[in-house]
């Protein structure tokens, strides 16, 4: 399993396409610009399913275009402001033709009320925050249902190391006295590192004061791989209902360009 750390190297890829149909052009644009998050077939991953799940920002061409153009502030959905109208049109056409074969009314199986109960029992809020409640150690889950596919949510619980989002990578620093400190990396450069330890303290080091820095390949979240199938399904169903508002004051990521 790719225990890898996610690296965003978003580069807007313009396309003076293309001899073939605009479906092909849309697909080519989608594969190289969007598939990284939304999956090769647009059924979701680190980004939501765009084919068979209801779209929280609306499923008309106009609303999809808006999301592509300006991104979703406070999330990893970047703004593709450099796409031409024609290119945006081709991507939308591609997406809409995919969803025709599977209507956007995906039914999430399971009992979300029971899922919420499990969330409490397992003390997920010891690391996560929903609507201002809980801990800031792990990623906020207020909007996780609108931001990820169902499969991705399930994997996040049973094999969290499969994909670790930027900003939540685990590191261990070894101090000169042999003491080891494990935490989430907030920032790092050639000479220094800043991290948040499990007690939510911010710890800051110059690397020459340390014996070493190890980048963990394992997630800092324990794998909940012994949940019963129903409990897991219910927990995922609960997470899928979490569609709180995005923080609109947050910055929009921009798909970069290349010189």
């Amino acid at each position: 399993m790719g225990k890898t750390v996610r690296k965003l190297l978003l580069v807007f890829i313009p396309a003076a396409l293309c001899a073939q149909s605009s479906f092909d052009q849309g697909r080519a644009l989608f594969r190289s610009n969007c598939a990284f998050c939304h999956g090769m077939t647009a059924t979701g991953g680190r980004g939501p399913n765009l084919v068979s799940a209801p779209l929280s920002h609306g499923d008309t061409d106009v609303s999809i275009k808006r999301v592509i153009r300006i991104g979703v502030p406070g999330t990893t959905m970047p703004a593709f402001s450099e796409f031409t109208d024609e290119e945006v049109g081709q991507v939308i056409q591609y997406l809409q033709s995919l969803s025709k074969s599977s209507l956007r009314n995906e039914n999430v199986p399971g009992n979300p009320q029971h899922g919420q109960q499990i969330y409490g029992e397992k003390d997920c809020s010891g690391c996560h925050r929903i609507g201002g409640q809980g801990s800031i150690f792990g990623p906020e889950l207020t909007r996780i249902g609108g931001a990820r596919s169902i499969e991705y949510l399930r994997d996040s619980i049973i094999k969290p190391s499969a994909d670790v989002p930027e900003g939540y990578e685990g590191v261990t620093v070894v101090m000169k006295n042999g003491k080891r400190i494990r935490g989430l990396r907030i920032n790092e450069d050639t000479f220094s590192i800043q991290l948040r330890d499990p007690s939510q303290q911010i710890r800051m080091f110059q690397k020459d004061e340390l014996i070493g820095v190890t980048h963990e390949t394992e997630s800092m979240m324990p794998a909940y791989d012994r949940l019963s199938a129903t409990d897991l399904q219910d927990l995922v169903a609960y997470l899928a209902t979490l569609r709180g508002a995005v923080d609109s004051s947050a910055a929009v990521k921009k798909a970069g360009g290349i010189k």
């Binding site: 890898t4 965003l8 580069v11 890829i13 313009p14 396309a15 003076a16 293309c18 190289s32």
Partner: peptide
């Protein structure tokens, strides 16, 4: 690296079509 057949339009980028999603590895 991705590719798809491009068409040349004067004044427009001529990448052929798109390259590079992103890799999962740290640089």
């Amino acid at each position: 690296f991705f590719s798809a057949p491009p068409v040349y339009v004067e004044g427009k980028a001529y990448w052929g079509s798109m390259f590079r999603g992103q890799t999962e590895e740290k640089e």
